[in-house]
Design a binder for these strands. Structure first.
Length: 909
RNA sequence: GGGCGUAUAGCUCAGGGGUAGAGCACUAUGUUGACAUCGUAGGGGUCCCAAGUUCAAAUCUUGGUACGCCCACCA
């Protein structure tokens, strides 16, 4: 029995109810031990996160895939969980402490970490709740967290193995240091921004007794970072730069510190830039670090003049004047920093070379520095300028780990979709730098390394084992640092399935996964590292296919960001239009290789689509059309029924091939067009006359076919719009199973060509009559008489078999096969048949003549163009036979049409 | 400095060697008891520019132009 539907569709009324039902009944992970597995893992959102529009896109696409595969009978597993997000989470909890005038360092490490766990227990579930609102059918029963105990094991094992294989090592070198978060970060976490800065020119005095040939006793250097001169260790000039050849090997005496440093020749110095001489600060600049090494300094000797906060501290040689100590590197909160003071002191000493600028009036004006755009590195989390800082950190030898993933993509073991990303992937992977994985945080996986008093390191999965390595009685201290969050999430495709435990049927069955869907923005952060760790730990690629989607942008095409205030909240859209509408929008807009611009009108349009389906179902119910009992198409004799069965088959294969290619837009549009333009606009209209009176074999057959077709729509639409389809599925009758676990259509019915031709004919007739009426200003409701003087076989049989539909849709009285009475009439075609519709007293005959002439002109134009092509010998000879055949058919059609219209005009007189 | 992408209707976008599509917007209209969150009909495009390949180019090639993104140490 069907359940009566309310007259309006309100998404909020059904969404929570169905989600709860699915989750409680285990529908997201049905027992299918013998089925072919299909596995995807969800990019674990930060546990601190809330659902943004990008998550909505990413997870909608994944849910469409997993629901589709589940309907196709696979053992579909969508692994879900959250990421402990080291920096982000620690920041959230620290901010909470700050609000209470408290701070992290008031606590022991253990106590602070306990607070973070408390926070997670209380507030960490927001995003998982929001994913549920989107309708995502993940396996919540196995929800993962990157700091679960079994995940710890996976991380420890990976670290120790990599260390033992020489692929993780400790090194002292410059790192990207975030002075706000006081931790090292990786290259990828640095974002370069062009900001307006200054380029200062200074005189560095040469040591006593050294001058240039012209008597000049200083060397000019230019810099954007004057403050770091407190740790300068050299001045570099290009080896081929004749201007400086005479002073290479000599020394300068640095202003302020009085440090005596050499002038060295190094290719790094660009003769074209500034004066061609550059100050070298190996401890605070990546290039200078390399120059310094080439000049013979070892890392341990390189001077450091900044604390981890970015404040000035004393250098090892003790030459920094007291007035600098404790100043911040730059001006901060209106207080001058070391930069400003250095400039001031040099200016006072007459060592600043002013920049001469011309005003608009061509007057010369002196400035302290030349204005200049400077590419400045910022930390992506802390948002402050990164300081290259000399520290000991742990590095992963990414270059070695990258070799197999590169090969996997190269030989097709991993397919990247869209393919255009491959180049970007190769470009990065082939130039990959060592990955700094240690972070000076408390929240995260603590590095499994212990040091003895002499600084010797012991890496082991536990302190006990480290102690065993070190020998009894050796006092060990554990490394305080934790690992980069991405180190653990790189293990996601297998650590979530139980690796490295020995016996893991789940792992055996579901690794490798079948597909990874992610935004291109984490291609390097996450996807590439999963490839590396998959190969390293499991010996194979984690998935055979990587689908990369774009960003969701604001309506004006700008990137959404909190600071711009143009962020669209997906939850707000769900509240307003329903999750189904938002999901459908995401799918319909997801063409490969392009970002999605937010378009709320379109979301509204898909809400309307849901309403349309709702009302179509209500109509079905009011005519006794309920659930279908078969998966196979019911037997059908009526033309309309055969036609819709054929159309279901064709849309089904269209969707299947779109899904095979991961063309979400094509799949969504196919089901949309079928449902609205075929099923609602034509099929439901065609069958209306059948339900006029008593039950007949025709009405029984039609109810069965219509119920079946609607069921197929619900199944095919379900991956895109899970909520409304599930609701309607049950409203259509009592069912053993929920739609989420139903079977994908498999229609292989025979459909006669005659039947489908007949429906095409009725549709053409109806459209043409409506159009003609409109053009002639005849009321659309007017019921007209129609005559077919020369009916084709198709016309004759269709008029006989589908008279009720024709009369209703085309608004005709019963069609007469035969001549029309003399008098004014309009001529309307249906495929190749010409109807004569008397219009005595209804219209002016000249209007009809105009209409026909217009149509004739159009047909003749087409026919002429085709004729021209067909009379071209080159075309006949060289074009593909199908193209020639097609052109002939088209010509015949248009020429025939022109003929018919000419005849019609003649009849008009 | 490298690499990638995009230019198609007023807007947002599909498509693609045989003469152009969708949704929204627009115009006209409201007949048939699912639906006005709707129906019906319609208007609207030198497919960025130029050259080349081809019987045929919006589609392929090359070169421009414009916009966007990513990577890179220019002090």
């Amino acid at each position: 029995m069907t359940t009566e539907l309310s007259t309006t569709f309100t998404p909020a009324d059904i969404e929570t109810r169905w989600y709860k039902h699915w989750e409680e009944t285990g529908a997201f992970r049905p027992e299918r031990p013998d089925a072919e597995p299909f596995t995807i893992v969800n990019p674990p959102p930060n546990v601190t996160g809330s659902l943004h529009i990008g998550h909505a896109l990413d997870n909608t696409l994944q849910d469409i895939v997993i629901r589709y595969e589940r309907l196709r009978g696979k053992d579909a597993l969508w692994v879900v969980g959250t990421d402990h997000a080291g920096i982000a989470t620690q920041m959230v909890v620290e901010r909470q402490l700050e609000e209470r005038q408290d701070k992290r360092t008031n606590y022991s490490r253990e106590d602070f970490i306990a607070k973070v766990w408390d926070w997670k227990a209380e507030s960490g579930g927001q995003i998982t709740h929001q994913l549920r609102r989107l309708g995502c059918s993940m396996d919540w029963s196995r929800e993962q967290f990157t700091m679960d105990p079994h995940f710890d094991k996976a991380v420890l094992k990976t670290f120790v193995d990599l260390y033992n294989d020489g692929l993780i090592y400790r090194d002292k070198r410059l790192v990207n240091w975030d002075p706000k978060l006081k931790t090292a970060i990786s290259d990828l976490e640095v974002e370069t921004q062009d900001i307006q800065g200054s380029f200062w020119h200074f005189k560095y005095p040469l040591e006593d007794g050294v001058t240039f040939a012209d008597g000049r006793d200083y060397i000019e250097v230019a810099t954007t970072r004057p403050e770091t001169m407190l740790a300068d260790m050299a001045v570099a000039v290009h080896p081929d730069d004749d201007r400086y050849a005479s002073v290479v090997g000599k020394h300068v005496v640095l202003p302020i510190t009085g440090r005596r440093v050499p002038i060295v020749a190094d290719e790094h110095a660009d003769p074209e830039l500034g004066s061609g001489a550059v100050k070298i600060t190996p401890g605070h600049d990546f290039n200078d670090f390399d120059v310094g090494k080439r000049a013979g300094f070892v890392a341990g000797e390189m001077l450091n003049m900044l604390t981890g906060d970015g404040d000035v501290c004393q250098t090892a040689d003790g030459l920094v004047p007291d007035e600098f100590l404790g100043l911040h590197r730059f001006k901060r909160d209106g207080v001058d920093g070391a930069r400003e003071l250095v400039v001031e002191r040099l200016k006072e000493a007459g060592l600043l070379i002013p920049h001469i600028a011309k005003t608009k009036k061509d007057e010369e004006v002196e400035h302290d520095a030349e204005p200049r755009k400077i590419a400045t590195p910022y930390g992506d989390r802390g948002g402050v300028v990164i300081e290259p800082w000399l520290t000991d950190q742990w590095y992963v030898d990414a270059e070695k780990l990258a070799a197999k993933p590169i090969q996997d993509v190269r030989d097709g073991t991993i397919e990247i979709v869209p393919k255009s990303w491959e180049k970007t992937f190769f470009n990065w992977m082939e130039n990959i730098q060592p990955w700094c994985v240690s972070r000076q945080l408390w929240w995260g996986h603590q590095i499994p390394a212990w040091f003895d008093k002499d600084g010797k390191v012991y890496v082991a999965p536990s302190e006990k084992e480290a102690q065993a390595q070190a020998g009894e009685g050796v006092e060990l201290t554990r490394d305080n640092d934790v690992l980069d969050t991405w180190f653990s999430s790189a293990l996601w495709p297998f650590a979530t399935l139980g690796w490295p435990e020995e016996k893991q049927p789940l792992l055996d069955k579901h690794f490798p996964n079948n597909l990874l869907i992610s935004g291109f923005d984490i291609l390097f952060f996450w996807d590439a590292r999963m490839m590396m760790m998959g190969q390293y730990n499991m010996g194979r690629a984690p998935w055979p296919k990587l689908y990369l989607h774009g960003l969701v942008r604001a309506a004006d095409g700008a990137k959404m960001s909190k600071s711009k205030g143009n962020v669209v909240d997906p939850l707000g859209l769900i509240d307003q239009y329903g999750a189904d509408a938002l999901r459908f929008f995401m799918a319909a807009m997801e063409s490969q290789g392009r970002d999605i611009k937010m378009d709320e009108k379109r979301v509204e349009g898909y809400r309307n689509f849901a309403t349309k389906l709702w009302n179509a179902t209500r109509y079905c119910q009011s005519n006794g059309i309920g659930k279908s009992t078969t998966i196979k198409a019911p037997p059908a004799r009526l033309a309309a029924n055969q036609w819709i069965i054929g159309e279901v088959q064709s849309v089904c294969s269209e969707i299947e091939s779109a899904m095979e290619d991961l063309r979400f837009d094509a799949a969504a549009n196919a089901i949309y067009q079928f449902t609205w333009s075929k099923f609602c606009d034509w099929y439901l209209e065609l069958i209306k006359p059948v339900f006029g009176g008593e039950d007949t074999p025709a009405s029984t057959e039609t109810r069965e076919v219509a119920g079946w077709a609607l069921d197929q729509i619900l199944v095919m639409l379900h991956p895109f719009m899970p909520f409304i389809t599930e609701e309607l599925w049950h409203a259509q009758g009592d069912r053993k199973d929920d739609l989420i676990l139903a079977s994908w259509p498999n229609p292989r019915a025979q459909v006669s060509k005659e039947a489908t031709d007949a429906i095409e004919w009725v549709i053409d007739l109806t459209t043409n009559i409506r159009s003609a009426k409109n053009e002639l200003g005849i009321s659309p409701g007017a019921k007209l008489a129609a005559f077919l003087p020369e009916a084709s076989d198709l016309a004759a049989s269709t008029v006989e078999r589908s008279s009720a539909a024709i009369e209703r849709l085309a608004r005709l009285t019963p069609v007469t096969l035969g001549e029309a009475p003399a008098g004014p009439a309009m001529q309307v075609t249906a495929l190749s048949d010409v109807f004569v519709i008397p219009l005595e007293g209804i219209i002016d005959i000249s209007e009809e003549r105009t209409r026909l002439e217009k149509a004739l002109a159009a047909s003749q134009k087409e026919a002429k163009s085709l004729e021209g092509r067909l009379s071209n010998a080159n075309f006949i000879e060289r074009a593909k036979p199908e193209a020639v055949e097609k052109a002939r058919e088209d010509f015949a059609h248009h020429a025939g049409e022109a003929e018919r219209l000419t005849a019609a005009l003649e009849r008009l007189g």
